[in-house]
């Protein structure tokens, strides 16, 4: 990390971070929750609710969608996060208690939570059919 040597540099850095945060939190964010029987039984509906509540609490504008069985039943509840300019990330076993950290790290800090990732799709592949 570069060393900050003046208040002006600090202000500039803060402004840059603020702009980056705005981009990440723009309406380009889409979160998808799998709600097949496997997902429902694993608590995906509660995960969906926790996501909505966390987004509301933090004032984050995002679209939340549900889909049927995604196909990795053993990793339910599954949550997909898509953001403009970033690869689509699929997280597995996202129970409701994990949602605050997921939102904090992925959406606020822009950092993928590597230990929960079960799939990753490059940005250019996002426009194709879902597997």
């Amino acid at each position: 990390m570069p060393r900050i040597s003046s208040v002006e540099e600090l202000k500039a850095l803060r402004e840059q971070a603020r702009r980056e945060l705005q981009v990440r939190l723009g309406t380009g964010t889409r979160i998808t929750v799998g709600l097949g029987t496997c997902g429902i039984a694993a608590g995906a509906r509660e995960t969906m609710q926790a996501i909505l509540e966390e987004l509301e609490r933090r004032g984050i504008e995002a679209t939340v969608n549900t889909v049927g069985c995604i196909g990795m039943c053993y990793n339910e509840p599954l949550v997909d996060i898509e953001q403009a300019g970033m690869p689509r990330i699929t997280y597995g076993r996202i129970t409701a208690d994990k949602v605050p950290r997921l939102i904090e790290e992925h959406l606020i800090k822009g950092q993928v939570v590597a230990e929960w990732v079960v799939g990753r799709m490059a940005q250019e592949a996002n426009n194709g059919p879902k597997s």
Binding site: Q49, I51, L52, E53, L55, E56, I60, E61, A62, T63, V64, N65
Partner: peptide
């Protein structure tokens, strides 16, 4: 649209 998070919370 309902899929918009804040709208979804309102609807719920």
């Amino acid at each position: 649209p309902p899929a918009h998070a804040s709208a979804a919370v309102r609807l719920r």
